[in-house]
Design a protein around this nucleic acid. Sequence first.
DNA 1: CAGTGAGCGAGCTTCCGCTTGACTT
Length: 805
Amino acid sequence: MIKNLVIVESPAKAKTIEGYLGKDFVVKSSFGHVRDLPKDNNAIDIEHGFKPTYVVSSDKREVVAQLKKLAKEAEIVWLASDDDREGEAISWHLTEALNLNDQKTRRIVFREITKNAIINAISTPRGIDMDLVNAQQARRILDRIVGFELSPVLWKKIKTGLSAGRVQSVAVRLVVEREREIDRFNAEASFKITAQFDVQGKTLEAELPARFKTEDEAQTFLQKCVGASYTIENLEKKPLKRTPAPPFTTSTLQQEASRKLYFSVAQTMSIAQRLYESGKISYMRTDSLNLSDEAIQGATKEIQRSFGESFVKQRRFKTKSASAQEAHEAIRPTDFSQMVASSDRNEQRLYELIWKRAIASQMADAEIEKTTATIGISTQADQKLQATGEVIKFEGFLKVYIESRDDEDSADEDVKGMLPPLSIGQEVSLRQMLATQRYTRPAARYTEASLVKKLEEMGIGRPSTYAPTISTIQKRGYVEKDSRDGKERPYQVLTLKNDQISSQQKTEITGAEKAKLFPTDMAMVVNDFLVEHFPNVIDYSFTARVEAEFDEIAHGQKEWEDMLDQFYKKFHQRIESSESISRADVSGAREIGTDPATSKTVLAKLGRFGPYVQLGEENTETGEKPLYASLRKGQFLETITLEDALELFKLPRVVGTYEDKEMTAAIGRFGPYIRHNSKFYSLPKTLDPLQVTAQEAVNLIEAKRKADAEKTIKTFSENEEVQVLNGRYGPYIVVGKKNVKIPKGKEPQDLTLQECLDLAEATPEKKGRGGFKKKEASPTAAKKTTKAKAGTKKAATKSKSSTKK
DNA sequence: CAGTGAGCGAGCTTCCGCTTGACTT
C-alpha cells in the first residue's frame, strides 16, 4: 500500500525527486508518451470530427501495466509530467490509460528540479487543462495527416519509401535552396589595401577602409603613395563592453559542441544524455534560458571562490523565441563546484563546455579599450589608413568562456592585439603596402548544427526532435553530410616596397567544405514537386501559422476540430488533384546539350536507380537505343556540364582480355576499378580508368591474387566457397558472402569443412538492403538464429508479453 | 563497387514529439 504515487516523464528525474519527497511518496516515470495514434491509416476518423484512436505504444505496455498497478494501490496519484503542451497531453493519456478518477488524481507542475519547487508544486495542485490537451491533439493529428497523405503521393509520383512532413520537408527545402543560392553566386573581386609600418621595433598593421574594384584603381592608389610620408593624425580611445552568452539550450549546445568539439548533433545528445543520467547536468532537451535561484547561487559561490567577488554578476536571461515552451531550466551543471564529471574524454569535454558557459553567464562583463589610429598619407589628403587595437582592461567572463561563431573566417579576425605606443603628429615609416585581391563569398552551406539553429529560429521542430530530424533527412536520402576539396583560384597581389611596385599572382583554395550538408538530386526533385503542388505546407511560415492556431485552441478561443477541418479541406483537395500529375513531369529531366561527335542530345534525368545521363533517344524504327551512364559522387543533375557528361559515356570500357575473360574499367561508388571474371579490383590513384592498359590491369589482378593467397590459411578442395582467412582482426571463415568469426579455443589450422559450414549456419544473415526476394527465403532461419544468439533474456520477456496478451 | 532506365503488380514504405535502452562493429 502506498500513499502517494508521483509520475514524471523521465526516470532520472524520478530518482532525484524521490530523494526530495521522503518515504510517503513513490516516484515513477512514464518514459515520455505512453499512448499514440496507431501506425495504420485509419487512426483518425476524419468524417466524424477527426476523432482519433489511441493505443498504448508497444514499448510502453509494461510501463503502463506497472503504473496501473501502483495507481490502484495509491491514495493519490500526482501527475507531474512537464509543464508544456506535450506534458499536459501525457498527463491526460495517463488518466485514460490508467483509468484514474478525478477524486484521487492531481496535476502538478514545476519547471526546475529543486526541493523547493517540488514542495511548492505539491501544495498547489490543479486539474488537467483540456484546452491545452486539445491543442496537442490538433498538433498530433495535423502532423499525421500531412505526413501520411503527402508521403504516398511521393511514392506514386517519384519513388517509393520517400517521406514528407511539416518539419522534415522544410529542413530539406532550406538545404536545397541554400545549394542553389551557392550555385547561382558569382564571386566579385575587389582589392583591399593593407600596410605595415615600423614603429620603434614593433609592427603597426593598418588598412584602408575603402576597397578598389579593379586592379587599375589599386595600382593608381599605390602609385600615388610612392614617395609619400605617413603621419598619425588622430588617436581615438573607446571603452567597449562584452557581455556573456546565456547558458545553453539544446540548440546552442549542439552548435557549440559542433564548432568547438566537432560533434554531430546526435553525438552531442547521446553524450549529454549520459551526463544527465549520471546526475551531472540538468535536463538536456530544453529551450529555456532560465536558471533556478539555487543554480545562480551555486554559480556565484564557485565564481567567488575561483575568481573573486569582482567577477560575479548575477543575470537572468529572457528567451527571444516565440515558440519556446520553457518547461525546464537551461542546461547547467547540477553542482558547479565539480569540474570533473567523467573519466570518458568526450563526456568530460562536453561537461566542461556546459560548465564554462553556465558559469560565464553569471560573470561580469568584459571591459575593453579599443584604440583607432588614423594615418594620413602626405600625397593623398582624401584617403586615410586606419589601425585598430584592443586592450582588455578587465577580463570578466572572458576568463572562462568565449563563444565561437559560424563564420570562422580568419580574414576578419576578431581578436586584435595591442597597438604600439603612438602619439598624434608622429611620423611612421612604411615597411610595405599591399593591394590584395579578395573575393566575396556565397552563403555558407549548413552544418547539422547550423541547420538546427535555423529551424529553431523559424520555430520549427522541438529540442527533442532536432537530432532525429537531422538524421531522418539523411536516412531518406535527401541530404548527405560530406566534405569536399576546394578548388584553386588565382588572386593578384600588388606590393609597394621601397617605392617600387611589383605584381604577383598567388593561388588560394576556395570552396573547401568539411562535414557540410549537401542536398541530393532526389531532394531537389521532391522539393520542387512539393513547392509547386503543396506550397502551403512547405511554406516557411506554415508552422508559425498553425502554432498560432494551436495557441488559440490552448486558450479556449478555438475548437480544435474546426481548425483541422479548415486546414484539411484545402489540403486534401490538393492531394486529390495531384493524382493527375504525370510522373515524367517530376523527373527533373534537363537537356544539357548536344554531343558534337554524334550530334545527339544529352539529357540528365532522375531514374529509379538514381541520377543518370542519356545520350540520344530511343528510335523504334531504326532500333537505336540510347546510351546511359550514372552520375558519380559529387555530380548533380542541376550542375553537371556537357563536358562531364560526355566523359561518363566513355566508361565502362573494355581494357583487354585475360584468361579468356574481358577486363573492363569503370568507376563505382568506391572509386575506379577493373572488373574481371565478376571480381573487382580497385585501381590505385596512379592509374586512370580512361588510360589504363591491358598489361597494367593484368598486373593488378595478379598482385591482388598474390596478396589474397598470402592471407589464406586454409582452403577446401571439395568446396571452393569456403575459406579460412587472416583478416585485420584475426582469422575468420568465409562461406560464400558470409564472414564468420572463429570461436575461442579453435585453431584455425585444424578447422574441418563441416565445422566451417556449421559455424556459418549458426550465424545470422547480415541485414540486406531491402531486397524482398531474400525476405521470403529466410524469415524462419533468421528468426531461429537471432533468438538463439540473443540468449534467454530476450526470449523470456518475449514469451511473457505474448502470454499476457 | 556492375548492369539496369518497359510495364505489370505483389506488399511494403510514411508523420512529429515525449522518453530510454538494446542492439552491433
